[in-house]
Each structure stands twice: as structure tokens, then as C-alpha cells.
């Protein structure tokens, strides 16, 4: 597991049903591109988050493919419509097979 990985999510706690809300996510990750060489002249192996998804009550909101050119600590900001109360589930997929998860619930009135 890559070290120092910590997902963070910001979702409003409440919304009016049908509202469009802004979601911000950030995960601390070194995002090693696989193109750099270390002090010994050898290539530092690629280690990035390659996929990020967000689901709301089982329905997909966003599904992102990340490429090596994305810089360290990737930050996403996107919008979602909230039809009802429920839970946003966020998943980041690491190159090394690790999966980092976060969830936030929201109350719609």
C-alpha cells in the first residue's frame, strides 16, 4: 500500500430534494508517474490512483479514469442532483490493487 494515503470528502449534510449540490473530494497520494528516474538511474515504478467513482444509493454519479499526468493529491469537484436522502459512496482504486473508500450521508427534505 502506498504510504500516507488518506481520502477526504466534503458533502453538504442537508439539501432540498431535487437540489444540485457541489461535492469536493481529495485524496493524498504521491501519484508517481512511472516516467521519472531515481538517484540510481532506474525508473521509479508507476504508482497512481487509476480510477475514481462516486455512487449515490447504488446509482453511479461519476466514474473517472486517472492518467499518470495527474499531479499529486488529486482533487475532484463535481455536482450531483439529490433526489432523496441517502449516502454518497466514494471509491479510489490504486495501481497496487488497494481500494480506498469513503462515505457521506445526506438528508434531503
Amino acid at each position: 500500500m502506498a504510504s500516507g494515503v488518506k481520502p477526504r470528502v466534503k458533502v453538504p449534510k442537508t439539501a432540498t430534494a431535487g437540489d444540485i449540490i457541489t461535492i469536493k473530494t481529495l485524496i493524498s497520494h504521491k501519484m508517481e508517474s512511472g516516467q521519472r528516474k531515481g538517484k540510481d538511474g532506474n525508473i521509479i515504478p508507476r504508482s497512481i490512483i487509476n480510477r475514481f467513482t462516486c455512487d449515490f444509493n447504488g446509482q453511479n454519479v461519476i466514474d473517472v479514469t486517472l492518467e499518470p499526468a495527474i499531479s499529486t493529491n488529486p482533487f475532484f469537484e463535481f455536482e450531483a442532483m439529490v433526489p432523496e436522502s441517502g449516502e454518497f459512496k466514494f471509491i479510489w482504486y490504486d495501481d497496487d490493487g488497494d481500494v480506498y473508500e469513503a462515505a457521506k450521508s445526506i438528508t434531503a427534505s
Binding site: 500516507g4 488518506k6 477526504r8 466534503k10 469536493k24 481529495l26 493524498s28 493529491n73
Partner: peptide, 12 residues
């Protein structure tokens, strides 16, 4: 604080 990248290391 969420937008401030420096806060990542405050957490650390």
C-alpha cells in the same frame, strides 16, 4: 480548509 492543500500536512 478543504481547498487549502497545506491542510493535508496539518492532518499528517
Amino acid at each position: 480548509d478543504f481547498d487549502n492543500p497545506g491542510m493535508i500536512w496539518v492532518d499528517a
